[in-house]
Nucleic acid binder design. Structure first.
Length: 190
DNA sequence: GGGCCGATTGTT
DNA sequence: ACAATCGGCCCG
């Protein structure tokens, strides 16, 4: 049984976003609410966003909203979208290089979708910029059970209009929490 | 200041 | 297929 208080260190996040997105499958997202209750769930769907990627919020440079994506890795990038929802990302890449991984779904009730996950676990703009490398922030990520390539599919990212040449969506094959009809190709070994 | 669009979701 | 709902960002 994995230790739910031992979070991934900075080195895990200080890599190219697609690699982090792939390796976050099977990891455990943890959330402390009311300073007492701890929620946790296996990450089952992610998407990577990088510099020189027209789908990335940071593509057109640093702005107040995207500032944390240009900072050190291992912290949360939470943004507000469609006037209703928040989305949780993990900042990746070395300090100064923008990049992030969107957490799209977690194996926990009501966490099937990035907007629903944040609503269910009360993740809002207050969590923007907090460290995910320690339980102290109330939001952190721990290693779980490694997922073999044969259990992973990839596809274009969801809901974007540019950058579809990159197949940077990663998800667990046949998991009920993943978006839509889970169309995808087998992950290639690295 | 104006206008358009969006890494979503739920309903028609 | 479309509405809900509003901050970010570009333009001027």
């Amino acid at each position: 049984m994995p230790d739910l208080l031992k979070a991934y260190p900075r080195e895990f996040y200080e890599r190219h976003a697609p690699a982090v997105a792939r390796d976050l499958l099977g990891a455990v997202l943890c959330r402390a609410l009311d300073g007492e209750r701890i929620l946790s769930g296996k990450i089952v769907e992610t998407e990577a966003y990088t510099a020189y990627d027209p789908a990335c919020h940071a593509f057109r440079g640093r702005t107040p909203r995207t500032a944390v994506m240009f900072g050190p890795p291992g912290v949360a990038y939470v943004y507000f979208i469609y006037g209703m929802y928040f989305c949780l990302n993990v900042v990746t890449e070395p300090d100064g290089v923008p990049g992030a991984v969107l957490i799209r779904a977690v194996d926990s009730r009501g966490c099937d979708g990035p907007g629903k996950l944040c609503r269910q676990w009360q993740i809002t703009g207050r969590e923007n910029g907090v460290s995910l490398m320690s339980p102290a922030s109330g939001l952190w990520i721990c290693p779980g059970s490694p997922v073999p390539d044969r259990g992973v599919l990839t596809s274009e990212r969801i809901g974007i209009s540019r950058g579809q040449e990159h197949h940077w969506r990663y998800f667990l094959k046949d998991h009920p929490a993943v978006s839509g009809r889970a169309h995808g190709k087998r992950a290639s070994g690295r």
